[in-house]
């Protein structure tokens, strides 16, 4: 399976609550007319400027081992090594909401509209995350159709730069996936352009293969610990 997908901005429009949360604001701030106005404007601009695109390519465990090993810089205790070996299916992916929205954010800062610029930047980050989630859900649904409904099948995604998968892994991932087809480029620091892009692997399998501890050699440097939230959600959905 190798597929390029076009998706509409409204399919991945971030929830106002998630934007507030990402800016460390309580939900009650939505009642503040100034904040509500900024949120409304940011979402309108998101709808206007986001150009979501995604690419996904299914591959074998053997091929993925080449991608994962990358430049040989991963942590030896990276959980992906165990997870991918036990996964039923896996697919590399890349998503982007395009350059125009980043250009608009820059423009807002240039004209001193800092609050709206920052709000749109947060909305763009949340929207990009929604796009990756959207793709992950589509992949999961396609697997369920293929195998007949398998309610115990779960998916989880990982990206280079997180959970012991060194960021230099982007090189091999780009080699195998060719995200340039949807306009994503990689610079010498392994940074993707457009900035609002996510790449990685989606793994599918039984829930038990995804559990790992939060005390691995690289966990100290992690600023998000979002794996805990994702595991919690997965656990809850499989009770």
């Amino acid at each position: 399976m190798s597929d390029r997908k076009d998706i509409f901005a409204r399919d991945i429009l971030p929830a106002p609550e998630s934007i507030l949360r990402a800016q460390d604001m309580p939900i009650e701030k939505m009642a503040d007319p100034r904040i509500a106005d900024l949120l409304y404007q940011a979402l309108r601009l998101f709808d206007q400027y986001a150009e979501p695109q995604a690419i996904i390519r299914e591959l074998s465990s053997e091929d993925f081992s080449l991608v994962l090993n990358g430049e040989g810089n991963n942590a030896i205790d990276a959980p992906l090594y165990d997870i991918y070996m036990s996964a039923d299916s896996l697919a590399m992916f890349a998503v982007t909401i395009g350059e125009k929205i980043s250009d608009e954010i820059s423009r807002l800062f240039r004209v001193s509209d800092f609050a709206l610029g920052a709000m749109l930047d947060t909305a763009a980050s949340e929207g990009t995350d929604n796009l990756a989630n959207f793709l992950e859900s589509s992949y999961k649904a396609s697997l369920q159709v293929r195998s007949g409904s398998n309610s115990s099948l779960v998916t989880m995604r990982f990206s280079p730069g997180y959970c012991g998968w060194d960021i230099s892994g982007q090189l091999k991932l780009f080699e195998f996936l060719n995200p340039d087809k949807i306009g994503i480029r990689l610079n010498q620091s392994f940074l993707m352009q457009p900035l609002k892009s996510i790449s990685g692997v989606i793994l599918a399998g039984a829930p038990k293969i995804f559990y790992f501890e939060d005390n691995l050699s690289f966990c100290d440097q992690c600023t998000t610990h979002s794996c805990r939230e994702r595991l919690k959600v997965m656990q809850a959905s499989n009770l």
């Binding site: 800016q23 460390d24 604001m25 701030k29 100034r34 904040i35 900024l38 001193s112 509209d113 800092f114 609050a115 920052a118 709000m119």
Partner: peptide
């Protein structure tokens, strides 16, 4: 107060 409040104030300050 939160980031948007600070940034609205900063814009006024810059002006």
């Amino acid at each position: 107060i939160f980031l948007p409040d600070v940034l609205l104030a900063a814009r006024a300050m810059h002006c």
